[in-house]
């Protein structure tokens, strides 16, 4: 009797542990976004990394914030902007990273709400390649241009570019009564 009660209690505890292990991570994910409780549901999924804190969290928050655009500024990152909106975004970034979301997940979340414009580094796809390749094209194009010009100048002998100059000078010399000695 005692034995069977003990077994039943053990089974109950086992089931509680199984249920806890199954649903606790989900509950942690939804902690900020609990329907019924105060908060906002973030459509971001489950954290992919372990939780972070301290100096590591501070450093990674700076890194992620530096790559997201402040929505109310002109070309400033969330990390650099002193605006209230940027501060709120930075707090959100820190909170997500602390919960174990990866930088890629955080970027994805902000992109899913603000659009690609929020990313300071545009994705390497489609027309964005123009932005990534333009500096190299400009540099090497300019360099090629300079080389072509310098080579052509080195090859070309100095010539009289003004074809009418000789005729004009002949006229001048004729006027002053001298003959041209120029070949």
């Amino acid at each position: 009797m005692l034995c069977s009660r003990h077994l039943r209690q053990s089974a109950t505890w086992t089931w509680l542990l199984v249920i806890g292990a199954t649903f606790l991570p989900g509950a942690l994910v939804a902690q900020d976004a609990a329907p019924g409780g105060l908060g906002v549901v973030r459509q971001i999924g489950k954290p992919e990394s372990p939780t972070r804190s301290g100096e590591q969290l501070e450093q990674i928050t700076e890194e992620v914030s530096a790559k997201l655009r402040c929505p109310v500024c002109q070309g400033m990152s969330v990390a650099d902007s002193p605006s209230a909106s940027a501060r709120a975004m930075k707090d959100e970034i820190e909170e997500l990273l602390a919960q174990g979301y990866s930088p890629a997940q955080v970027n994805q979340y902000f992109e899913s709400t603000y659009g690609e414009f929020v990313l300071l580094d545009p994705k390497r796809q489609g027309l964005n390649w123009l932005i990534w390749l333009a500096p190299g094209v400009i540099f090497f194009g300019g360099l090629a241009g300079v080389i072509v010009v310098m080579r052509s100048r080195a090859q070309d002998p100095p010539v009289d570019e003004d074809g009418d100059l000789d005729a004009y000078l002949d006229r001048v010399r004729a006027r002053v009564g001298t003959h041209s000695t120029r070949e």
């Binding site: 906002v40 709120a88 707090d91 959100e92 902000f110 709400t113 603000y114 659009g115």
Partner: peptide
């Protein structure tokens, strides 16, 4: 609080 709804809706201003 914390502008979390504004972030979830991608508010620029």
């Amino acid at each position: 609080p914390g502008g979390k709804a504004a972030i979830a809706y991608g508010i620029y201003g």
